[in-house]
Computed example of a mutant assay.
Amino acid sequence: MIGFSSFSKTPDTRLAAQACIDKIRTPAHQYTAGFSSPLYTMIDIANQLERDPGTARHVWVIRSDKQSQVESCHTRISAWPLRFSPTACASEKPLLYLTSSATSAELCALSNESARRGILCNDIETLPSRWPKGAHPWVPLWLAANPHCLPFDPASGAEAHAIALAALQSLYVEGNAGFYYMALHDEPNDFVAPISHLSASQAFKGMYKLNEIDTDAGQPRVRLLGAGLALQSVASAAQMLRDDWGVESELWSCPSYTRLARDADKAQRWNRMHPDMPRRSSHLVDCLSADDCPVVAVTGYAQHVADQIGGHIQSRFVALGADSIETSSSKSVDKRWIVALALRALAQEGVIAQACVEQAMGRYLLQ
């Protein structure tokens, strides 16, 4: 059996990563405004790094995806040759993997061939499929359970850009273990405000707030969380809640429910094991513990992905996924159901009358 070693992190690795970070640090206007899709943002980043002579020699780009490719002598279709290259093994470089992989078996193979390193970008959501987000139902289970993987589902090009920068910093400058995964869709978002430096940092932690509402107005309030393309349905539901029912919605983009849950679990374990020490918090708890209004978390995957954070939320919590409603097509999350479930949560809290829920079910033909 032929043996091979993993990549070695050296000072040259940090220098290569810094060169890539410097090249893409200043995003194009469409990234910051949120108008570019996550998919074309990452393709553009890969093209920039390959076409610039100053960074082309500092990055490994693998393109096994079905999107148009840039012609470059630096492009590869597999990471396996790197595993057998003495030069590659001697000093690791940032690895950007663009793929179209619909099953966990394919993703497992890709992570093995890249030594569980790099930024793995999957555009399967853009292709025809009978599964939600184009991914076999085992994929989100594999992503959530894989301790080497930190998965993200960015809603906009700005989020994808922020996550890519932070991943380069974490993996190759700081030398942390594991790999990052991004599910990429190709629809631009015209409702996401320009992302600030603080929001970019919080997006990498798993969630950040999109709007501010007047808490003194006395209107019923909910907090709506969304990830990836499902955030568009969440934003539409917020508009319906305001226009049809007089309910204000605090909107949160959650690029990674899994990271939020893992960090909250870690803090909870530490507090349990160190009862006499000051308690540790988590980004999830810091964001959502200041209020007691209901939380509705939406994902384009199955409901269990959003359910990961439920145990750490003190207020009434509702998770909604592509498999949550029996009458749905199981391909997307219906904004009408987000509205109905938000109203039901408010009714269960005694904030609005149960009759409002019944009216909404009839009005939106959900019965």
Results as ranks from 00 to 15, higher is better:
P188G: 15
A227M: 12
H58I: 00
D65F: 07
D186F: 01
W142M: 13
Y180W: 11
W138A: 11
P255A: 03
Y208K: 02
R63S: 09
F179L: 15
G246R: 01
T99Q: 07
T126L: 08
L15T: 04
A227F: 01
E250C: 04
W245T: 09
K9G: 00
T32Q: 14
T55A: 06
A322L: 07
S201R: 05
D214S: 15
L150E: 06
M277K: 14
I309A: 04
E358S: 12
A227H: 00
S78T: 13
Y40H: 14
F317V: 03
G226D: 05
L110I: 12
A345L: 01
T327I: 12
D244A: 08
L320V: 09
R63K: 08
S78G: 04
T41C: 12
E250K: 09
R269Q: 12
A237M: 12
N176A: 05
E326H: 04
C89W: 06
S5C: 04
M273F: 15
D286G: 02
M240I: 15
K133T: 11
G300M: 05
M1N: 08
S64D: 14
S324F: 00
P147G: 10
G34V: 04
R51M: 11
N189D: 14
L165V: 11
Q30N: 13
L343I: 03
R279Q: 15
Y97A: 08
G134S: 03
S111G: 11
Q348E: 15
L15D: 11
S100W: 00
L39Q: 11
S196P: 01
E349C: 09
G54R: 05
F35W: 13
C254N: 03
R57C: 11
D216S: 12
L171I: 04
P154F: 07
Y180V: 14
A145I: 04
S104V: 05
P154A: 13
A264W: 13
R279H: 05
S68W: 12
T13L: 11
G311I: 08
I119M: 13
D22F: 01
L107Y: 06
A105F: 09
P151I: 08
A28W: 06
A102T: 01
L224Q: 06
Q48G: 03
C89F: 03
S332P: 06
A340H: 08
G228R: 00
A33I: 10
A264M: 14
G134T: 00
I338R: 04
R336E: 13
L127Q: 08
A302F: 13
S101I: 02
W138K: 10
V318S: 05
A319Q: 04
P53D: 06
P255T: 08
P128H: 05
T215M: 04
A90H: 10
P194T: 01
S8L: 09
I352V: 08
F35Q: 11
F84Q: 15
P132L: 07
V70Y: 12
E174K: 13
I213K: 04
I213E: 03
V305A: 01
P140D: 02
A102P: 01
R57F: 07
C293K: 13
D243C: 03
A355T: 05
C73F: 06
D243S: 11
W138R: 14
T32L: 13
I309T: 08
T41F: 02
M42I: 07
N112V: 10
D65S: 13
I338V: 10
W270F: 15
F204Q: 03
R336K: 15
T87M: 10
L260Y: 07
R262A: 09
D216I: 00
W131Y: 13
L141T: 15
S37W: 01
